[in-house]
Write a protein that binds this DNA or RNA. Sequence first.
DNA 1: TCTTTAAATGTTATGTTGTAACAACAAAGA
DNA 2: TCTTTGTTGTTACAACATAACATTTAAAGA
Lengths: 153, 153
Amino acid sequence: MTRESLTSTALERAERHCEEQGSKLTDKRRQVLSGLLTSEKALSAYELSDFCRTELGHNILPMSVYRILDFLEEQNLVHRLNLANKYVACSHIACEHEHRLPQFLICTSCHRVEEVSLPSSVMSSIEGGAKTAGYHLVRNQLELECICSDCPA
Amino acid sequence: MTRESLTSTALERAERHCEEQGSKLTDKRRQVLSGLLTSEKALSAYELSDFCRTELGHNILPMSVYRILDFLEEQNLVHRLNLANKYVACSHIACEHEHRLPQFLICTSCHRVEEVSLPSSVMSSIEGGAKTAGYHLVRNQLELECICSDCPA
DNA sequence: TCTTTAAATGTTATGTTGTAACAACAAAGA
DNA sequence: TCTTTGTTGTTACAACATAACATTTAAAGA
């Protein structure tokens, strides 16, 4: 399956998903999501604005990109990586996979991102540690600084 | 033990630590570290610059604060929290505790931070997951968005 | 002690990330 | 058609961070 067809499958899926939620995947939103799907790595809002313009010919100013990313994040179509201040398309848009505690492996060199799922035992252990210290987790997302196999150590 | 004496103990400890490393805890560096120890919560470089000036009477411009924080981080005397873009004093400066995989519980409301240690089994499990995906962890630090017991949910 | 060198800090400018506030436009329903 | 609501455009600015170079201080060697 080519990357292009994966992307268009994901876009169709995203469109249906939005409709089910009673919201719309407008042209601009589709363009932003498509940019993130095409880029194959995490991008900042500004980088994504550039990418859409130079690679896809869509002119979307950063302010709009932010708003659209907020929307897409609410729809669980993209994830914001706080560690890197960048965004990635959810790797499960195009599959039936249930949404669970995502663990993001972020290559600090090339910004490639892998989204994997944690064993629930790990997360409950982390959650337990927090509870003991009097804290309550508000976001079950783990972000880890890594080097990927393509990048030199 | 009062907060003041804890802070001064930590500063003495930090000074000795730096000497052992062949570097020096200069006046400015001591002032920045002291600010972070006194503040009791995570501060950005700019906030710390303000805090040092208004609370401690030390005028240290943000640019210098950044450089000094870099130094203090190298010495493991402070930690940078990427999730919040803020810095905290290491909670183990003044004790004999060994440095292990720290897990930072960050209250997104009041920025209080608790530094706890993960069971090594949890970390090795996370590390294993990364390895399977072809990634290598470069920073064994977990940062978690929380609400602390003092803040309303 | 004097000189040289390296380290630390000061200073100015600028880059990057993110938000606030309001205007313009478009789609949907009464 | 008119109104309402949601989306996008536009401008301005706030917060976080670094680059580049000047100045000062400390240390080390002659």
